[in-house]
Nucleic acid binder design. Structure first.
Lengths: 147, 147
DNA sequence: AAAATAAAAGACAAATTAGTCTTTTATTAC
DNA sequence: GTAATAAAAGACTAATTTGTCTTTTATTTT
């Protein structure tokens, strides 16, 4: 459903939301190590996120990637819009060209409910709120320090 | 989540379940036309399904693919096992190497419910029952004759 | 100013998935 | 037996996704 690029992007943004600030930046190497994802690959993804205003960056010594309060007003759907080509919430699970309440595929109902729940999670709260929730509930964006 | 191959496979099996019999076979060309999927691609998929006993086939004139009552005792999960490499129900939506009730990612709960519902739909009834349900509820495996 | 650091940019390479085409084999009809 | 038909088998191409590597540019520190 999600590409690796999107998965890495979401986890990286949540990592920065929880750990970074304009005074505490993280290089692509650190992020790659923290999330256990390929360094050069995540670097390119981070560049896109910077370009679209979802995260911030600074060059040179002491530079790296970080999030500002302004960045944190974006939501996860904004991340997917930047990384993913089409609209993943629009695709039929069984591959029908169109699939809706009038023309449902055999699993449309089940998939629809799932998509709605995801849309709420990803679209109805900003990254700040999402990140707070992650911290509060103790859910994981990496297995480092756990396994 | 599903590869095109799996999507085509599920729709093809449901098509044969509803329309075929040992006396009424369908060539890969007919199936490709009915479902609007690439002919040679679906042909290779159908071969795999035959090999694994999910559908049947006959060569030569009057030959083609079809399902027997025995075939219809398989379920959709069996199709996925043949076509898909790993277990799609085992993968974390955000890409964590492991993700379970003890080590959940931020969307594990939502995704888990979806997977459970899908598993029931795909695993707890055989193709015959699934196909009957599709016919009864009027859900679609193709848009031919609809749009 | 020079050296060091780290992102930005973009060219490559590898792997996977998707899709096509040709040859072979089995079956049926004549 | 010959011709026609259609699946089986497998080689091949194309597209997409994933991942790597090198060069350039901006920033900071000394």
């Amino acid at each position: 459903m999600l590409s690796n690029a999107s998965k890495y992007a979401i986890r990286a943004v949540l990592f920065l939301a929880e750990n970074s600030s304009s005074k505490n930046k993280f290089g692509s190497k650190q992020i790659s190590a923290a999330l256990d994802v390929p360094q050069h690959f995540i670097a390119k993804i981070l560049q896109k996120l910077v370009k679209s205003g979802i995260i911030s960056s600074g060059k040179g010594p002491g530079g790296g990637f970080y999030t500002t309060p302004e960045n944190l007003k974006k939501n996860v759907l904004d991340i997917l819009k930047v990384i993913e080509k089409g609209d993943i919430f629009d695709e039929c699970f069984l591959g029908l060209p169109v699939c809706g309440d009038e023309n449902p595929c055999p699993v449309h109902d089940i998939v629809s409910k799932f998509k709605d729940a995801l849309l709420v999670k990803f679209g109805n709260q900003d990254i700040k709120s999402f990140s707070d929730e992650v911290k509060r509930e103790g859910t994981l964006i990496t297995l480092k320090n756990v396994l």
